[in-house]
């Protein structure tokens, strides 16, 4: 991600050791930003992979996932204020990081 891109509202972290590749998150994801890996993990499963951008941070993939910690959903933090923000680009873009909150 570069500073010139629009920052996504959400971000996914996938534990490829824990994921069993059931694919429920892929089916559930509203913006369809999760896919299945080509590589097999330690257990021989193809695992979920985040496309890298487009996550809204809705958390539905986390809800449907049967594993306790295979998926972690992160959400962008709303800067305390535009003046004190160290990320002027985001303000300039007019993103509303916490719209889904």
């Amino acid at each position: 991600m570069t500073n010139t891109e629009k920052k996504d509202r959400g971000l996914l972290r996938i534990d490829t050791d824990e994921c069993k590749g059931c694919g429920l998150c892929i089916e559930a994801c509203p913006p369809k930003v999760i896919g299945l890996s080509e590589r097999l993990n330690h257990y021989g499963y193809r695992t979920a992979v985040y496309a890298g951008h487009g996550c809204t941070g809705c958390g539905i993939c986390f809800m449907v996932c049967p594993e306790p910690g295979a998926i972690t959903v992160l959400r962008a933090v709303l800067p305390p204020s535009r003046q004190t923000s160290g990320l002027p680009h985001h303000d300039a873009e007019g993103a509303s990081p916490c719209a889904s909150n």
Binding site: M1, G10, F62, T72, V73, R75
Partner: peptide, 17 residues
């Protein structure tokens, strides 16, 4: 995923305590 990419984000849905 690098910590740098996660800068500016907080966990909203994660492993339960």
């Amino acid at each position: 995923m690098s910590n740098q990419a996660e800068a500016g984000y907080v966990v909203s849905h994660g492993r339960s305590k």
